[in-house]
Every structure is written in C-alpha cells, then in structure tokens.
Design a protein around this nucleic acid. Sequence first.
DNA 1: CCAATTTCCTACCGATCGTTAGATAAGTGA
DNA 2: TCACTTATCTAACGATCGGTAGGAAATTGG
Lengths: 200, 200
Amino acid sequence: MAMGRPREFDVDKALDLALEVFWSKGYEGASIADLTETMGITKPSLYAAFGNKEELFRKALDKYVDGPGGYFQVALAKPNIRAVVEHMLYESADAVTGPDHPPGCLAVQGALTCGDAAESIKQELVARRAKGEQDLRERFERAIAEGELPPGSDAADLAAYLSAILQGMAVQAAGGTTREQVRKIAEMALRTWPPPPSST
Amino acid sequence: MAMGRPREFDVDKALDLALEVFWSKGYEGASIADLTETMGITKPSLYAAFGNKEELFRKALDKYVDGPGGYFQVALAKPNIRAVVEHMLYESADAVTGPDHPPGCLAVQGALTCGDAAESIKQELVARRAKGEQDLRERFERAIAEGELPPGSDAADLAAYLSAILQGMAVQAAGGTTREQVRKIAEMALRTWPPPPSST
DNA sequence: CCAATTTCCTACCGATCGTTAGATAAGTGA
DNA sequence: TCACTTATCTAACGATCGGTAGGAAATTGG
C-alpha cells in the first residue's frame, strides 16, 4: 500500500502553535494568515492537515483542555473537598498567568462574544464552561453527601460561585494582571471558603 | 450662518443601537454592515456622524459607562462600605442579565482578545477595567481609614477580589446564565464579605 | 522504472472587511 | 433666487477574509 509523500512538519507541534495563536487572539482575532505564519506552514498544508479554521480551533481546544487546562480535572480528583477547591484556585491562578503561554483562559476568551459566523464556536465554549461547572457541581454533591460541607449547602450554587471566581481570575489575567495579584484573589476566595448556606 | 441639510436620524438613538450591537457581538464581531443595518442608516451617514468604527465604539462605550454601567459609580457613592459592596454586587447581577439589552458587560466582552487591528480597543477596555478597580481600591482605602473594615485589610487586594467576582458574573451572564443564578453568586459573595485579612 | 498516493507550493477564488468618491437633495442666510 | 453648507445615497475602492485548483515533488509498492 502506497504511503505517498511524507509530511514535512510535525502536526502535533503545529497544533500547539495554533493553540497559542487562538489563545492570545481569540477565534475571530486569529486569521488564517496569523496561524500559518506562526505554524510555519502554508495554507493548503493547514487545510489538508486540519480541515478548516473551525476544526483547527476545536482540535486546539481539545489539546488545551487536557494540556494547560488539565489542572481542572486533576483538582476534581482530589480526595477531599477542601483540597479540590484549593488546588482549583491555586492552579488556576498559575495557569492563567503562566509565563510560557498567553495569559488568560482559552475557554473564556476564545469567543466570549463574536459575529454570526463564529456563533457555533461561541456555543461550544459556553458548553465547555457549563460542563466544567457541572463537574464541579457533582463533586460538591458528593462532598455534601459525605458531610464535607455544611448541611444545607447547595452544590449548584457553590459550583456557580467558584466558576465565577475562576472566570473572573481569567479576565483579570487576560488584562495583564500579574501572577502575584491573581494568586491573592485565589487566596482571598479560599480564606472565606466555604460560603455558608443561605439562612432563609 | 448656513446650517445645511438637517440630519434625518437621531444621533443619540443611533448610538444606542450601535451600543447594543457592540455589546452582543464585541468590537471585532460587529461589522459595519451589522451596525448600519441595526442603526437604520447607510455607511456614509455612519462615517459622517461618528468618524469610523473605532470612534463609534469609543462613543458607545462612553454611553455604556454612564448608562447601563452607571450603577458602578452609584455604588461607589454609598455612604458605608457594606452598602457599596451590596449595591455593586446586586446591581451588577441585574445589569449583566438585564432583559432589555444584551447579556454580560461591554467592558469585559467588548474585546477580551482580538486581532492586531483592534489592539488599541482592547487596551482601552483594559484601562477602563483597571480604572474601575482603582476607584474601588480608593473607596476601600477610605473605608479602612474610617474603621469600616478589619484592621490589616488590604484595599488593593479587596478591590482585585471584588473586581474578579464582578467580571466572573459577567462571563457567566454572557454565557446565558439566568438572572436568578447570577444573583445567587452575588449573594454568596456577600455572605462571606468581607474576607478577613491574611493572617501572615 | 513505473504507477499510485500523498504533500508541497503558487496562484487564485468569491465574499466580506472598513472606508470613501462623487453626485444629488434639503436646508439657511443674503 | 442664489450661493453655501451639510446630509443623503449609490457605487465603488483596495485589503483582507476563509478556502481551493492544479501541478510539481517526494515517497511506496510492484
């Protein structure tokens, strides 16, 4: 069976470079020219290897989620709820201010708003964030069942609250806030954790 | 002195409509065609009245800040620090989920990331968010001086923390989270307010 | 050496981007 | 009525957008 001409670039490496571009400029802000230039390949090579811009973004997003964004699942797997939240906040603070990649979080800034053409990408990111919040919620439910959180705690509310803080840290980082300052936000959130259940 | 042909549209009304478009699609996602269609005017009319896309955005942003975003300054002016934070959180929850305008916050989602051409708009929004945080910080400094916050409280840290929560609520809203759910985030933040100073 | 297969690159596609000439229409002041 | 000014519109500008033909180059199996 004929193999054909071998590829002259590393697909995985090129995807990493594409991820960096999407991460720093967002889906709409990253042009095909930006991408090919950074990836070091021509447009036909990009399309042959990755399909089109949308598919390329989705592949980059997958790589992000279990690469730089992998701390999320690691945190979820911690044995007690305090460790989960601590890890989530501290690792997130470091992740969104990592010195070796763009600031912020791809799932937040990839397409928080966009034109009509990118609507499906925006929805994909909305769904990913919702999935993360849902995972958190389930983890909190387990913690409540195991008596790790005050009676009356609402897992959904806790998940929304923590998600908001994480996303807020991402916005701060995207705007250039330093790692030290973002870490302080994480520390303050932890200092008041867990928020007690509503007294109503 | 000759007046020339009178304008056939209401500049202020058109600017409001432009604001809605930028608010829901972001600076890059809003095309001139989108804007003129919504505003009900032709492209030359837009350019004659507002300069160019960038100037139009800046004018819309100004209108946003002392219109839908006006709650921020109102909250800052409250007489005691608890009222400031309460107002800020509750009004923000309602503002980012207002039924009569796009969800989220223009200062966050207008250009969280972007291509090279929109870099100056992104920087403008970064500066605006930083200014809001700085205003908060100064209000906290006053509160600390007046003994309204625990001794040892750090005004800058408190401002960064509250800013992050507000921005996180905006991200949640932009993703379609309901007003009720966003309000719960505000309530939970308030339930733990103020975070005590670091014990180190 | 010769198909068959796959990647490579140059050049180009139509559509849309933001922006503007240039002509015409509607008002004011003399 | 007649300049003057300003707004209106159609139509177009060059640049860039995402995406692709089409042919040359490089590999494998026969």
